[in-house]
Write a protein that binds this DNA or RNA. Structure first.
Lengths: 232, 232
DNA sequence: ATTCGTCAAGAGCAGTGCTCTCGAATCCTG
DNA sequence: CAGGATTCGAGAGCACTGCTCTTGACGAAT
């Protein structure tokens, strides 16, 4: 029962892989709503009903694509972070920002699937939340490292967060050990700022407005880092 | 040719109104992908082909819904701003934030249509860009008023933006007269931060993480205002 | 009163997700 | 190795979608 037992299981795993591969290609071309089980089956030389042997519904196929997307982005984030000097906290943050933006621009439909409007009658299953935390876990590690090295110096321009959010901050603190409530809220603000910026760009909110987007992005992410207190 | 010429045009306008009304109700219930021309026609006691007398395609119906959405949100923003003292710049900004968040939570599918992933093969026509600027115009006016009153004092914790983005800043400056490039970038950062936060909440990115969302939102928006330099 | 434009209705096309049944191929067990 | 159990692909079919085209009826202008 190591990698593959029977021949049937081998071909089954291979078929599942091939289906998701074709589906991902259709997704990147036509978007989530254009993903058709019948079209995938047609391309595989199968009949549509045969697909249902491998994916009980279209939503399940979509779910694995979402999971794959989170993993792909998460892995890219991990690699970008790993390529930086451990004590270059600002560089690590900017690397994460750039790889998120780059991945989103390279795979806009997949990005939309992860961070855009949820698809129609689709309910996000439990399987998606674990891989979804992969990217933000890296982010938390960067901040935790900076805190541990006493290099995080957030500028004292903000009011203290209300005590109401302490329980929520506790949840986030599992990702950023040692962070105060103030740092937690700054961290979430910067994180949502990153994705807000990327979403605005990917979803076309910047058309006819911001054209030097790479430079603009670079600068605004640096600003968010400053708000966070990351050392330059 | 004043309000209504012939009886035929009257009933035609009324039918268009009724179709969009039913379509909007279907939209808020089932989402954009669940919006079906046939279902709308069925509810009106019409046959599906009759709808095409009034909307040449499903995308055109969607476009008017998008335009209506931008106008509804824009009008809400305008009203919220108008209800504040003109020199309470922080209050006006927070009012805008709250009304955006409230409207998004009350109409998640419509919000997704405006600020989420663009629908499948749908290309945003020109008609949508004008109403889309209604909300951000209010935002620009708030900042412009604060600048004119010399009450905008952004904390000097950020690096100067690169000169590359000056042409883009010029474009935004038509909305915020008198703003420096630095203020412009801060303003865009705060604006995307607002929508990033709202999108994360509406699209379910905060589930199992941030639960005291109203308080959290209030605080983070205050932080963004501080970054902007709005007086408390 | 007749002509002309507008309209609702219906049939129809091509496509979708999904279910069911039916042989055939494959696997596991005796 | 043989037989029963599982799994699988194929096909038909249901209910639904957006959209097109034709047909016949109604109302308004000439």
């Amino acid at each position: 029962m190591s990698a593959s037992r029977t021949a049937r299981e081998r071909v089954r795993a291979e078929l599942i892989r091939e289906i998701t591969e074709i589906a991902r290609r259709h997704l990147t071309v036509d978007g989530a709503a254009g993903l058709s089980l019948r079209a995938v089956a047609r391309e595989m030389g199968m009949v549509s009903s045969a697909i249902y042997r491998y994916f009980p519904s279209r939503d399940d196929l979509l779910t694995t694509l979402i999971v794959d997307g989170y993993n792909a982005l998460g892995e890219a984030v991990e690699k970008a972070d790993a390529a930086c000097a451990r004590d270059d906290y600002m560089g690590r943050w900017l690397a994460v920002c750039h790889v998120v933006r780059g991945w989103a621009l390279a795979h806009p439909h997949e990005y939309a699937l992860l961070y855009g409007s949820p698809v129609p009658g689709y309910r996000a299953p439990e399987d998606t939340i674990a891989p979804a935390t992969r990217g933000v876990a890296v982010y938390g590690r960067i901040l935790a490292d900076a805190i541990a090295a006493e290099r995080l110096a957030p500028p004292a321009i903000l009011p203290e967060p209300p005590a109401t959010i302490t329980p929520d901050a506790d949840t986030v603190r599992t990702l950023i050990p040692g962070a105060s409530d103030d740092v937690i809220t700054r961290a979430v603000t910067a994180w949502t700022g990153l994705f807000g910026m990327v979403s605005f760009e990917v979803f076309g909110q910047f058309t006819n407005t911001i054209n030097h987007r790479a430079e603009f992005f670079e600068h605004t992410m640096t600003c968010l880092a400053r708000l966070l207190g990351l050392p330059s």
